[in-house]
């Protein structure tokens, strides 16, 4: 199926969930986050769509005041078609349903995005940091991230604009 057909299929099943956005390309679609788990189940199990592979899960920070986003690249091994789903989160309280039990790789992908952006995936059975240490503070890939002064007594070097590394 083409991206337009996939979007139409989503729209007919869950009317009004597609958010219109100018800056997204054809293969991308923004969905509202409140029904995400149901929609993801539909995307995976519908025989015409059957997105059985979660290729990639990317967190994006759209800027200082903008929302956070999670982008799911879905792919179907059976039909060999793909779609990119974008879901926006409130910056102060970012959360969305976890798809960890649908696509098992979502487990680690969501942990990674949680680690980097602080997006909480509700229903995830093991929501811990994965790459950073468990007691790391802050969400490193957010655009407004300020590094820690020190970590367990180790001074964290900061980059200065002109002088390079301190």
């Amino acid at each position: 199926m083409t991206s337009a057909e996939i979007k139409a299929a989503i729209d007919s099943q869950y009317p009004g969930t597609i958010v219109e956005r100018e800056d997204l390309a054809d293969h991308q679609v923004e969905l509202k986050g409140d029904q995400w788990l149901d929609m993801a189940t539909f995307l995976k199990n519908d025989p015409n769509l059957s997105f059985d592979q979660l290729e990639c899960l990317t967190g994006v920070d759209t800027g200082e005041d903008g929302p956070l986003e999670t982008r799911y690249n879905l792919h179907s091994m059976e039909h060999r078609h793909k779609i990119e789903v974008v879901i926006s989160h409130d910056r102060e309280n970012p959360k969305v349903a976890s798809i960890e039990q649908l696509w098992r790789i979502g487990d680690w992908f969501e942990r990674e995005t949680y680690d980097m952006y602080g997006i909480v995936y509700e229903g995830h059975r093991d929501m811990r940091r994965i790459l950073c240490p468990d007691d790391w503070e802050g969400w490193p890939l957010r655009k407004d991230y300020e590094g820690q002064e020190s970590y367990h007594g180790i001074v964290v070097p900061k980059m200065k604009e002109e002088d390079g590394w301190e």
């Binding site: 059985d52 592979q53 098992r104 790789i105 992908f109």
Partner: peptide, 8 residues
Amino acid sequence: ADVAVSYG
């Protein structure tokens, strides 16, 4: 195979 696909 299905586990492999699901785990990416």
